[in-house]
Computed example of a mutant assay.
Amino acid sequence: MTTETVLKRKIPSSGELLPAIGLGTWQTFDVDDDAAARAPLKEVLKTLIAKGGRVIDSSPMYGTSEDVTGDLSTELNLNEQLFVATKVWTTGKENGIAQMNRSFAKLQRKKIDLMQIHNLTDWQTHLRTLQAWKEEGRIRYLGITHYTESAYTSIENIIKNNTVDFLQINYSMLRRTAEERLFPLAQEKNVAVIINQPFEEGELFQRVKGIDLPEWAAAFDCHSWGQFFLKFILAKNAVTCVIPGTSKPHHMADNMEAAFGKLPDENQQKQMLRLIEQLKK
Rank of each mutant, 00 (worst) to 15 (best):
L114V: 10
S224G: 14
N157W: 14
G92H: 07
P244K: 02
F199V: 04
R128N: 13
T28H: 03
F166H: 03
T28G: 01
T28P: 01
A98W: 01
T91N: 11
W225K: 01
L275N: 00
P249Y: 08
E188W: 11
P60H: 08
T125Q: 06
D71I: 07
D34T: 00
F29E: 00
G15I: 05
Q197T: 12
K110E: 15
F29S: 00
N255W: 02
A192M: 06
T3G: 13
R138N: 11
A186Q: 05
E266W: 05
Q269V: 06
A238S: 08
M1E: 14
A253E: 12
I233G: 03
K106D: 04
H251D: 08
K87P: 03
K42N: 09
L82W: 01
Q278R: 15
T3P: 10
I21A: 03
A238T: 01
I112C: 06
L7S: 01
T2A: 15
S73L: 03
E94M: 10
T153I: 14
Y62R: 02
G210C: 02
D67G: 00
I243R: 06
R138Y: 10
I97V: 14
R176M: 09
L275T: 04
M256G: 02
T5F: 13
E80A: 07
D71S: 04
A85Q: 10
T125P: 09
L120P: 02
G92P: 04
F104H: 04
E277W: 15
A35R: 15
I21Q: 04
Q187V: 06
T246W: 00
Q124N: 11
E4D: 15
F83E: 03
N237P: 11
R54Q: 14
R274L: 09
G245T: 05
T90Q: 04
D254H: 09
G24D: 06
K281F: 09
K262G: 02
M272F: 11
L279E: 00
K87R: 10
L45W: 02
K51T: 11
L17Q: 12
K262S: 07
E156T: 10
P198T: 09
H146C: 12
D212K: 14
L130H: 07
N119M: 11
I21T: 04
R102W: 01
L167H: 02
Y141I: 06
T47Q: 11
M100P: 00
V88P: 05
W123H: 07
T246R: 02
A39Q: 13
E16L: 09
L174Y: 08
D165L: 05
N79C: 03
F183E: 07
E257I: 03
G210Q: 06
Q168D: 12
R181I: 08
L107A: 07
P244G: 08
F29D: 00
N267A: 13
L275D: 03
L82A: 05
S224W: 05
L167P: 01
I169H: 03
A186R: 08
Q269C: 15
I158Y: 05
L182V: 09
L275P: 00
I194Y: 07
L48Y: 04
A258W: 03
Y62S: 01
A151W: 07
A85E: 10
S247G: 14
N77K: 01
V242Q: 02
G261K: 04
K111Q: 15
M272Q: 06
V239M: 00
S65Y: 02
T177I: 12
A192F: 03
D67N: 15
C241R: 04
W216Y: 13
A105D: 12
D265G: 06
N162V: 06
F220I: 13
Q268V: 09
E4F: 14
